[in-house]
């Protein structure tokens, strides 16, 4: 089908993963109560997972029919890394992961401060002093609005003795 847009890099793999996930979900749903009755807890999960399997078969067929991604600017894995998961995304996701790990350990204030500092610095690329002021300012604003005005309990760090 030439009228349809070409596949995005990695789309075929994603469609396959979607199918595998659907099948795994169906297997797990079957494990709940099997085909023992029509009102068992497992029947609706099985219907949903079955729907996923059928839909993903259609998606896979459709994706496979479309033209292969444009490889003039490098191989498929290379264009996947360029268009879908560039270094910037990988670094930001890595930063988020570090942030989430640090959150229960260092507490909201310290970990968010560090995350904002790192993320602003990486994405905005301005003078570190400007970044630091901005991170401190926005952190202060978030803290004021959510902790002081809305009385939300913010995570406290176990490492810092629950002080902040």
């Amino acid at each position: 089908m030439s009228s349809k847009p070409a596949r995005r890099p990695g789309e075929l793999v994603f469609a396959l993963l979607v199918l595998i996930f659907g099948l795994a979900a169906f297997w797990q749903a079957y494990e709940i109560s099997g085909f023992s009755g029509l009102t068992t807890p497992g029947i609706f999960p099985m219907l949903a997972a079955g729907m996923m399997v059928i839909a993903s078969l259609f998606i896979l067929a459709d994706t496979a029919q479309r033209n292969a991604p444009d490889v003039s600017r490098g191989s498929v894995p290379a264009s996947f890394l360029r268009e879908i998961m560039p270094l910037r995304h990988a670094i930001v996701i890595g930063l988020i992961l570090l942030y989430l790990i640090a959150l229960p350990l260092l507490g909201f204030v310290v970990s968010s401060g560090l995350f904002l500092l790192a993320a602003f610095q990486y994405l905005w690329r301005k003078n570190p002093l400007v970044t630091a002021v901005l991170a401190a300012g926005s952190l202060g604003a978030i803290y004021l609005v959510f902790r002081v005005v809305f009385q939300v309990v913010l995570p406290r760090g176990t490492w810092l003795g629950g002080l902040i």
């Binding site: 930001v92 988020i96 942030y99 989430l100 959150l103 909201f108 968010s112 995350f115 904002l116 993320a119 602003f120 994405l123 905005w124 690329r125 901005l134 926005s138 978030i142 959510f146 939300v152 309990v153 913010l154 995570p155």
Partner: peptide
């Protein structure tokens, strides 16, 4: 957006944590 995106992420994290700590 370089400023906006990190802020969204911080708000998302705190928002999720706040549901059940």
């Amino acid at each position: 957006k370089a400023i906006l995106i990190p802020l969204i992420i911080v708000l998302s994290a705190v928002g999720t944590y706040a549901i059940q700590n």
